[in-house]
Amino acid sequence: SGELYCSLLNPRNVRFESVNMKNVLHWSAPEGTGNEVLYKVKYSVYGVGKWIRKPECKNINRTWCDLSSETSDYEEQYYASVKAFLNGMFSDWVETTRFNPLTDTKIDPPMVSVSSTDKSISITLTAPEKWKRSPEEESISLLQVYPGLQYNVSVLNKKTKKRWFFSISNHTLVVPWLEPGTAYCVSAQIHVSAPLLDSDFSKEHCIATLKDK
């Protein structure tokens, strides 16, 4: 006799969300269900024959699964898939679109540090690091992943409300001949031209030039 088979609605909006190549699979619960539903996850390297289960994301009721470790080789592309189950009912496996870590990640703004003298401010920028498995692991700056990486820097004179822009490749910028005793606010953005990737601008770092001696 045919096996009794009840189907559950599919998980929805299954996709990778990636920041600095921390690649996390996200999805929404099947329509009309909540956190009573459980899930399991598998992934595959595009062009390689097999799907691989992710044990840490088996029988979970959260709707995300960190696949950063499994997708850390950014010279490969990946698919991931999610299946929902509840009281013996199963959904279909629902797949992501093809995920390319190199082009589909979002880059954080650079870290900005500012110091000042009476007439100048010095800006130091640090590109974010690529996600890594553990603090002990060697850090890889996104500068190494995207060699053409540049910085767009905005400097706002709080007194005159005038904003200037600089576009630099190295990570330091000195703006001389400023007005003493004046507040300047600096923010910076990362720009990669191939593939085309722009970070948001960082939050503003304000500093005042020293008063005239």
């Binding site: 595959s44 595009y46 062009g47 390689v48 024959g49 097999k50 010279e75 490969e76 698919y79 679109t97 093809r98």
Partner: peptide, 18 residues
């Protein structure tokens, strides 16, 4: 375009080596 390609197990450019 990629949605029109159902074959996950083979890559033209990357098989067997990237």
């Amino acid at each position: 375009i990629q949605a029109r390609d159902p074959i996950r197990t083979l890559s033209i450019l990357s098989y067997p080596h990237s």
